[in-house]
C-alpha cells in the first residue's frame, strides 16, 4: 500500500533536514503506529505524505498503491485515496460542512469512476457516518470547524475520513487534546473503519491511544529515522521507559 524508501526531507525555508533516511512499509489493511519524542519528525512525515507545500524531498521515494506519490499534488493524493486527519483542523468560515463534503465527496467519486450521489443519498451517508463518531447531524449546516470544540474538531476529522473512504488514512496526533471519553469515541470510530483494504498510519506521542486502536506494528521515530520497530508491546515499553534508552541502544551517530 505504502512504501517509503530512504526518505530525506528538509524544510524549504530553513534548509534544515528533518527526515534523514526514513524507511516504512505498510501493507493493505495494516495499522502502523509511529511514536517518537517531540521534534523527531512525526508531523513532518504526515505533512509530506499529504503533500503540504514548504517541504523539500532531497532523497528517497514514496510509492502509494503503485504510484509515485511525490509526483502527485495534494488534491490528487486525496482523490487517489490518501487521507490525512489533521492535528490542527482548519476553520473555513461561512463554508457549510455539507457544501464542503459534497464537493470533496464528488471530486473523489468522480476520480474513482463512481456516479455522483443523489442529494438524498448524500444526506443519508452524512447522517450514517456522523453517527460513527457521535456527531450531531445538525452539524451539516455549520461552517467547517468554526465554533467546534477541540473534541468536535477531532471527531469531525474521523467523520470526514469515513465520508471519503480512503485506502490509507494518516492520523496525525488525533489523540492530542482529547479527554478519555472523546478518545474512546474517536478510537471506536477508527476501529469500525478498519478493514482489509484500508491501512492506517497512526502518529502519536503517547501510548494511550494505542490501548484503543491496537496497531499491528509500532515504529519508533527518533531524529528523522525509524530506529526500532516491534509489536504493540513496544509501545508499552516506551510508555514505561521513555525514549532515551532507544537513543542509547540504537547508538545513533551524534548529530
Amino acid at each position: 500500500m505504502l512504501e517509503i524508501k530512504n526518505l530525506h526531507v528538509s524544510i524549504e525555508e530553513e534548509q534544515k533536514e528533518i527526515l534523514r533516511g526514513l524507511d516504512l512499509k505498510v501493507g493493505p489493511g495494516e495499522v502502523h503506529a509511529i511514536m517518537g519524542p517531540n521534534g523527531s519528525g512525526k508531523s513532518t512525515l504526515a505533512s509530506v505524505l499529504a503533500g503540504r507545500d514548504g517541504y523539500e524531498v532531497t532523497e528517497g521515494s514514496i510509492s502509494f498503491d503503485g504510484d509515485d506519490l511525490l509526483e502527485l499534488e495534494a488534491d490528487e493524493r486525496a482523490r487517489e485515496g490518501l487521507f490525512l486527519a489533521f492535528q490542527y483542523p482548519v476553520e473555513l468560515p461561512g463554508v457549510s460542512m455539507s457544501n464542503f463534503l459534497k464537493q470533496a465527496v464528488s471530486s473523489v467519486r468522480e476520480h474513482r469512476g463512481l456516479d455522483a450521489l443523489s442529494a438524498g443519498d448524500f444526506l443519508k451517508l452524512m447522517k450514517e457516518k456522523a453517527a460513527l463518531v457521535h456527531l450531531d447531524p445538525a452539524l451539516k449546516a455549520r461552517a467547517v470547524n468554526e465554533g467546534f470544540s477541540g473534541g468536535e474538531k477531532k471527531r469531525n476529522e474521523i467523520f470526514q475520513l469515513a465520508m471519503l473512504d480512503p485506502k490509507l488514512a494518516i492520523l496525525d496526533e488525533t489523540d492530542s487534546g482529547l479527554d478519555i471519553d472523546a478518545l474512546r469515541i474517536v478510537a471506536d470510530g477508527v476501529n469500525t473503519l478498519r478493514s482489509s483494504d484500508r491501512s492506517f498510519v497512526v502518529i502519536t506521542h503517547y501510548q494511550r491511544l494505542l490501548d484503543y486502536i491496537v496497531p499491528d506494528v509500532v515504529h519508533v521515530l527518533v531524529d528523522g529515522k525509524i530506529v526500532l520497530s516491534g509489536d504493540k508491546s513496544l509501545a508499552l515499553k516506551l510508555e514505561e521507559h521513555g525514549y532515551d534508552w532507544i537513543r542509547d541502544e540504537s547508538a545513533l551517530p551524534a548529530s
Binding site: 499529504a50 503533500g51 503540504r52 507545500d53 499534488e73 495534494a74 488534491d75 486525496a78 482523490r79 487521507f83 490525512l84 489533521f86 483542523p89 482548519v90 476553520e91 473555513l92 463554508v95 457544501n99 464542503f100 463534503l101 464537493q103 470533496a104 471530486s107 473523489v108 476520480h111 470526514q160 471519503l164
Partner: peptide, 18 residues
C-alpha cells in the same frame, strides 16, 4: 485553508471558490 481543502480532494480553484 487551501491545503485543508486539497487534502480532501478539492482542487485549488474550487477551494478558493468555496
Amino acid at each position: 485553508q487551501i491545503f485543508y481543502c486539497k487534502a480532501r480532494g478539492i482542487s485549488e480553484t474550487d477551494a478558493i471558490k468555496l
